[in-house]
Design a protein around this nucleic acid. Structure first.
Lengths: 238, 238
DNA sequence: CATTCGATCAATCAGGAATTGGTTAGACCA
DNA sequence: TGGTCTAACCAATTCCTGATTGATCGAATG
């Protein structure tokens, strides 16, 4: 309990370098890391162990390199593995990715969602999707159309009946909007009356309604590919 | 500009209920919502419009039900669509989902990641995966094995070379750990020397190395199915 | 009976003070 | 000359306090 941890402070200079590391290891071993993985601040610790801060920091650096602890300014020093960066942070994700990646990710994720939707959709889900289609046809501005288009895609995701997957979709969607926000949209005036997307949306909804797994997946993939092709020609929307 | 908005305050009592709503609508219409979608606090607003707070809140409730504005305690009242809840919030996701959903989501996402990895992995990625396999074989405790198992799966995700997809994987992974944390792990003592997972991991890595898209996807799916089957029998790990 | 007003609550935000790992410069010693 | 210690400062983070703000309840009011 009150084992001497600072009593080695007067060891020979030649061994002092080892001493700091050894004492630190002893201190960690003696500590109940499960209860509180946090180490005392450096200024306290170097005082407790009777070593200078520089030497303590050298020892800490060794243990950090070994992966036994991790440090962060303002937070402290902790025993254990460094927690993975909070990748859920939208702004971080948005800053690391690019429109091409977003499109590729949509092409991977959304057909999969459509397939799950075909398997699990309730009648309410299908009704919601139908509503989105009607509204998107009635849209008078491009903004409104976009809005209902987004609603449709989310309705499909919701129909997959998997809250976690829906959460991932929402994250993707948020990132997509964050990424695309910086870009200008040249032809905002066009309300886009016919639009090939209508038929594609219709096909997806019908496939989901008919429990046609492959059809729903394929329909979504073709729809997104068509969108991707369109924005390759003129780089506006995503 | 200084159009009268509070001048209707002395209208007949019979119309006062409408008055609050009408005045509120007028106020919002007159406001430049794009510049600042935030409405003044209720206490100010009901004073400006010359209506009681209760009546104002009724009107606000109507407009909120119509989807024209959204409110939140401590934040204020805002014109426009309610921003979708920060679904990146791990704790929220974790509280809404369950182990079964997590497993199903893994079964959907990770084979897809393995396929992408087979397409895009660099030699460094493959080296990293191999390292994880060696370390997981050398593991002396189950905890260590779990650790390197996680590392392997993340290495695969990283090999997909899509930062956004990697971010989604990390989110899924974090949620998984959060969900599984509440559960007890009965046989922590077993270090698990042979373990069928070794061969499965090996097959995945080899398929990725050989650019065998279907093989990588299939291998990952089979591996996860085997894990799922195992924890169906005894409900410990995820 | 409905409305209004006041008080209170809980969530949120804003600001500053304190904490903490990281860094640098100078003193000190061998 | 080279290494070490000390002090000070920096930047990121946390903690605390007070003020805002929507939500809610109760008494007064008419």
């Amino acid at each position: 309990m009150d084992k001497p941890i600072a009593d080695f402070g007067d060891s020979t200079d030649r061994q002092s370098a080892h001493s700091a590391l050894t004492q630190l290891r002893a201190f960690i071993a003696q500590k109940d890391v499960d209860a509180d993985p946090r180490l005392p601040p450096e200024r306290e610790l170097c005082d407790s162990l009777g070593v200078s801060r520089g030497e303590l920091r050298k020892a800490l650096a060794v243990l950090e390199a070994e992966g036994h602890l991790w440090r962060h300014v303002g937070k402290g020093t902790f025993v254990g593995q460094r927690p993975l960066e909070d990748s859920a942070d939208i702004s971080t994700l948005a800053s690391q990715t690019n429109p091409s990646e977003v499109m590729r990710t949509r092409l991977l994720l959304e057909p999969l969602l459509a397939r799950e939707a075909a398997m699990n959709a309730t009648s309410g889900d299908i009704e919601e999707m139908r509503l989105c289609l009607r509204r998107s046809r009635q849209a008078e501005t491009w903004r409104q159309y976009e809005n209902w288009d987004n609603h449709f895609h989310r309705a499909v995701a919701q129909a997959a009946r998997n809250t976690l997957l829906l959460g991932l979709f929402d994250t993707l969607n948020t990132v997509r909007r964050a990424v695309v926000w910086g870009r200008l949209r040249p032809n905002l005036k066009a309300p886009s009356p016919d639009h090939h997307s209508f038929a594609e949306h219709e096909a997806i909804a019908t496939a989901i309604e008919n429990r046609d797994l492959d059809g729903a997946s394929r329909g979504m993939r073709q729809h997104l590919e068509s969108v991707a092709r369109k924005l390759e020609n003129r780089g506006d929307e995503l």
